[in-house]
Write a protein that binds this DNA or RNA. Structure first.
Lengths: 238, 238
DNA sequence: TTTAAATAATAGTATTACTATCATTAATAA
DNA sequence: TTATTAATGATAGTAATACTATTATTTAAA
C-alpha cells in the first residue's frame, strides 16, 4: 500500500480522492496522465461490466469514446492487460478500504468482521470518490477477476508483479488471521479462500443460487454470515 | 448420477469403463457416437490443457485430428460449448468417484475426508479407465472450469441445465455436511467453497504460491490438510 | 516560436469464428 | 445388392477480432 495516495477533506471528515501507482508493465502510456486515458479507463469499466470481457473489444471501446483503435493501443498492449489494470486497481482500492476502516479497531475479531463486510460489497461507494463506477468495477472483479490469472501467461505476468495488489491484500488478511490466532497453520490459504469465496458466493447467489444457502432476498448480509461463521469456525477450531 | 453407466471387471475387482449421458444441448452431434467425435474430445483435452482455452481454436483442432473445421462444427456449436462438455464430464466423473469410493464408508467424518482426497487430485487415474487423459482433464477443470459459468450466457446456459453436473456434485457434498452436522446452516455454500477452493489452492500452489502456505514440495497432501481443517473447523464450530 | 508529442484518420494483415456448397465416402435399409 | 441416407472432406467465403503501420493534424512544452 505504499502505492496509494489519498486526499482528505477534513471539513466533511472523509476522503475525497484515491489514487494508486499502477505497475508500469500494465500500460504503454499511463492512462491517468491524460484525459483520453482516463476516458479509456472509465468507459472500459462500464462496457466490460455490461457486455462481459469476451465481447468487449478495443474497436467498440474506441467507437464509444469517439476515438480510434490506434489510440487505445497506444495506452494498452491488449485487452487482457487492460483487464489486469482494472482488477489491480480494484484490489488496491479494497486494500486501502481495509487499512482505512480497520484503522482504529483494536479487537482482532472485530477487524475480521469489518474485513468481511468490506469484501462483501454493499454500496461501499458512498464513502469514497473516484472517477470510476465502483459498482461496475466490483462486478468486473467478481465475474472477470479470475481471468486475469487463469491464463497461460500467469507465470510471466507474476514475474512482472502484475498480481501484486491481490497478493498484498491476501497477505494483509493473513496477518489479521495470525493476529487473531497465532497458532493457525494456514493463514494465507484461508485468506485467498475467503477473498475468492466472497466473490464467488456473490456470483452464485445471483446466477447459480443452488450453490449457496441464501434466501430470495439476495442480501449480501447472508454471505457475510456464512463467511464469518467459516472464518471464525476455522480460526477457533480445537 | 442417473446419467452414469459403468461396467466392472470382477476378475480384477475394479471398474473398467465409465460413461456419462451428456446434456444434449451441449452438442449438435453426439461425439460419443462416432470415432471422429471421440477423437475430437480426446484431442481437445490434450490441446486445451497444453495451450489454454484462449489459444485453442477449432482450426487448430481440425488440423491436429487431420480433419476440417466444418467437421468439428458439425459436433459443437462453438468452443465454449465444447469446454462446458469437457468440464461437465469431469464433474460427473468426480461425482461418480465420490459415490464409488464412499460406498462402504459409514463414518460421516471419514466420508468427508475421502471426499477431500478425491477433490484434491493425486493420480486418481490408476483406478479408472476412460478414453480421456485424466490428468489433462483435471488441469482443464482447474484452470478453465470457472470460465464455463463466468460468461454473459450463464443464465441461459443454466436454464438449459448445462451446469447440472457441478450442481449435483455440490448438492451431494452438502448432504454429507448435513449428515455430519444436521444443524449447520450453510451446507451448500460450504460445498461450493470447498470445491472451488480445492481447485484454486492447487492452481495457486503451482503459480502464485504466496496465496497459500505450502512448502516447495507442492504436495497435494498439504492442500488436503488445509481443507480438512477448514471443513471440520466450520462443521464443528460452537 | 519552434519543436516535439499525441491524436485522428486511414489502411492493411493475419487470424478467428463462423456459414455454405457440393462431391465423395461410409453406413444402413429395402 | 442396390438404393438411400448420413457423415465427411474439400473448398470457399464472410464478418469480426486483434493487431501494426503511415501520415496528416492538432495540442502541449521548451
Amino acid at each position: 500500500m505504499s502505492n496509494c495516495l489519498c486526499t482528505f477533506d477534513k471539513t466533511i471528515g472523509m476522503q475525497v480522492d484515491f489514487k494508486v501507482k499502477m505497475n508500469e508493465k500494465l500500460f504503454l502510456r499511463d492512462p491517468e496522465g491524460t484525459d483520453i486515458g482516463k476516458h479509456i479507463i472509465k468507459t472500459s469499466v462500464t462496457m466490460i461490466s455490461e457486455m462481459g470481457y469476451e465481447l468487449f473489444t478495443f474497436k467498440k471501446l474506441a467507437t464509444e469514446i469517439g476515438s480510434t483503435e490506434a489510440t487505445v493501443y497506444r495506452y494498452f498492449e491488449n485487452k487482457h492487460k487492460l483487464l489486469i489494470y482494472l482488477v489491480d486497481w480494484y484490489w488496491a482500492f479494497v486494500e486501502f478500504q481495509v487499512i482505512f476502516q480497520l484503522n482504529n479497531v483494536i479487537d482482532p475479531a472485530e477487524k475480521i468482521r469489518k474485513l468481511i463486510d468490506i469484501l462483501v460489497w454493499e454500496d461501499n461507494a458512498s464513502t469514497v470518490f473516484s472517477e470510476l463506477d465502483q459498482q461496475s468495477l466490483y462486478y468486473i472483479a467478481i465475474a472477470e477477476g479470475s481471468k486475469t490469472y487463469l491464463s497461460k501467461e500467469v507465470d510471466n505476468h507474476n514475474k512482472d508483479f502484475l498480481f501484486k495488489p491481490y497478493k498484498d491484500l491476501c497477505g494483509r488478511i493473513a496477518l489479521l488471521f495470525k493476529e487473531y490466532n497465532p497458532t493457525y497453520k494456514f493463514p494465507a490459504s484461508l485468506a485467498s479462500t475467503l477473498v475468492e469465496s466472497a466473490h464467488m458466493q456473490y456470483y452464485f447467489m445471483h446466477h447459480l443460487p443452488r450453490l449457496g444457502d441464501y434466501s430470495k432476498k439476495k442480501s449480501p448480509k447472508e454471505i457475510e454470515a456464512f463467511l464469518e461463521h467459516l472464518v471464525f469456525g476455522v480460526l477457533d477450531a480445537k
